[in-house]
Amino acid sequence: MEAFTQHIGTAAPLRRSNVDTDQIIPAVYLKRVTRTGFEDGLFAAWRNDPTFVLNQPEYDGVSVLVAGPDFGTGSSREHAVWALLDYGFRVVVSARFGDIFRGNSGKSGLLAALVTEDVVERLWTTIEADPGTKVTVDLENKTISAGELVAPFEIDDYTRYRLLNGLDDVGITLSREADIVAYEATRPSFKPATLPAKA
């Protein structure tokens, strides 16, 4: 995973709450067996709507998405994160995220920045007044700035550490193999196994 320290880019205001992962990418777009190529499915139902924010020319090339509360609820599909990344987003800002979505973001290098509803509102106002506003997201200092606004965002320390260093979770855990082996020796014999199969 690529390390993430600071990101500067333009932003799109998504004035909707409860944007679940079925809205981010509908199930029919989940059939690929690769990790890339999901940009076509991003917000598929809304992309046909000429008034949808990402269809406005002033929001071409955005890399920061500022969304209403409860963004990324619902299905566990990591394809939602991949679709946002494939489209060009590096940061999503919201006042509340679905847990699984937030976890998935951290694994794939998309920064899910948690802010207060008031900050979301001020970001929306700033961006809508001038869609060319550069938004700076500083992971080192956990701040987001746009125009006059400088606001803190929350992210858990461990995800921040991994993003800053571009670390791969599986590699970290495999370095703790001895702990896993020791734990396995303590598992009770009544725990079920899938093999051999019984019917």
């Binding site: 566990s76 599909r77 990591e78 699984i100 998935n104 694994k107 794939s108 979770d169 599986v170």
Partner: peptide
């Protein structure tokens, strides 16, 4: 869990 966690 997401796919990265499935791999993990």
């Amino acid at each position: 869990i997401g796919t990265s966690e499935v791999e993990h």
